[in-house]
Amino acid sequence: MSIQHFRVALIPFFAAFCLPVFAHPETLVKVKDAEDQLGARVGYIELDLNSGKILESFRPEERFPMMSTFKVLLCGAVLSRVDAGQEQLGRRIHYSQNDLVEYSPVTEKHLTDGMTVRELCSAAITMSDNTAANLLLTTIGGPKELTAFLHNMGDHVTRLDRWEPELNEAIPNDERDTTMPAAMATTLRKLLTGELLTLASRQQLIDWMEADKVAGPLLRSALPAGWFIADKSGAGERGSRGIIAALGPDGKPSRIVVIYTTGSQATMDERNRQIAEIGASLIKHW
């Protein structure tokens, strides 16, 4: 067993022997301040990774656009098919120029040779490549099948209805392509620590998230040296922004954090800054 596999296998073990965790309302004060600064709703939840206990939450059962955070769930569904012998990570998928959609920095470079399922998941999570996500959605049967996968996990809230990039439209009061912070946090925890996926697939999923290259201005910008984070960000229309993450000190994750916002007129930089400040408060009061 590799060191990384050992780390993920012992996530519940280490967490069980940690000192009790206590909620700190100071972080919620910052979440509410972010709402004021952005002029928009902000949803927040913080779960203990081992027990699933909610440590703090704000608007945990209000719907927010998922945006690209759905790509972690998508690759979880792909990995479940791999575990069941219905898919192979090494299978190569070929596609054409007509398949390319807006923001496809990886797939646009491989029109000639195609990409493997493993490479597509890596591109979808680490670079948020939209064509990679659409190609992977095709392998599982489309958005409705991802929703069905989530329902089978016990998540009857999260739903995907459309493809990239239309799913980022974020129309107010439109339930399409949305989740709730509580539902997303619980589902992410199941994917990373539950028995739904094999140990190898859980490790692969967290490795992809740990290698995320496009979430630097968010929670990662607030992390002290030595902290662990595996995350996936999302951005959408109407001032929408979000991030889902597993993080913790001492090089291992111990909490799940989900943050979503929508309806702001603020710039992307300002949305990023507010999420980073929430992260800084979380870490300060850990």
Results as ranks from 00 to 15, higher is better:
240 S>T: 08
57 S>K: 11
207 D>N: 13
149 F>H: 09
241 R>D: 00
37 Q>H: 11
174 D>A: 05
237 E>V: 11
261 T>V: 14
44 Y>Q: 00
190 K>Y: 15
127 M>W: 14
79 L>I: 05
256 I>Q: 01
276 A>W: 09
214 V>P: 07
281 S>F: 06
95 Y>C: 03
258 V>F: 02
88 Q>Y: 13
273 R>W: 07
124 A>D: 02
62 E>A: 05
209 M>D: 00
108 E>W: 15
247 L>P: 02
160 L>R: 01
159 R>I: 15
206 I>P: 00
202 R>V: 13
250 D>N: 07
128 S>Q: 00
123 A>N: 05
113 D>H: 07
213 K>W: 05
84 A>S: 12
37 Q>T: 06
191 L>C: 12
277 E>C: 06
115 M>L: 08
177 D>Q: 00
171 I>A: 15
39 G>E: 12
68 S>D: 00
204 Q>A: 06
173 N>T: 08
87 E>N: 05
56 E>C: 06
82 V>N: 09
93 I>V: 07
233 S>L: 01
268 M>V: 11
107 T>Q: 02
275 I>Y: 15
199 L>W: 09
66 M>Y: 04
40 A>Q: 10
132 A>H: 01
179 T>N: 01
97 Q>P: 08
262 T>E: 08
37 Q>V: 06
47 L>T: 11
232 K>R: 07
50 N>C: 10
120 L>H: 03
40 A>P: 03
194 G>D: 08
75 C>Q: 02
152 N>E: 15
234 G>N: 02
110 H>P: 04
282 L>Y: 03
211 A>I: 12
112 T>H: 14
177 D>N: 03
126 T>I: 07
140 I>F: 14
272 N>F: 02
39 G>T: 07
239 G>P: 00
151 H>E: 09
77 A>M: 12
163 W>H: 08
208 W>S: 03
168 N>M: 04
98 N>A: 07
140 I>G: 05
136 L>G: 02
86 Q>K: 07
263 G>H: 12
28 L>N: 14
265 Q>T: 07
200 A>W: 12
144 K>Q: 08
25 P>M: 15
101 V>R: 07
189 R>M: 13
207 D>T: 09
236 G>Q: 03
157 V>Y: 15
65 P>L: 03
228 F>N: 12
93 I>D: 00
246 A>T: 07
136 L>C: 04
134 N>K: 03
154 G>W: 04
262 T>I: 06
158 T>L: 01
98 N>G: 06
274 Q>E: 14
212 D>M: 03
74 L>M: 13
97 Q>L: 10
145 E>A: 08
80 S>H: 14
113 D>Y: 15
127 M>K: 13
51 S>H: 07
96 S>Y: 09
37 Q>K: 08
167 L>Y: 01
225 A>L: 07
191 L>V: 15
189 R>G: 09
49 L>W: 13
43 G>W: 01
198 T>E: 10
91 R>H: 08
284 K>W: 10
130 N>F: 01
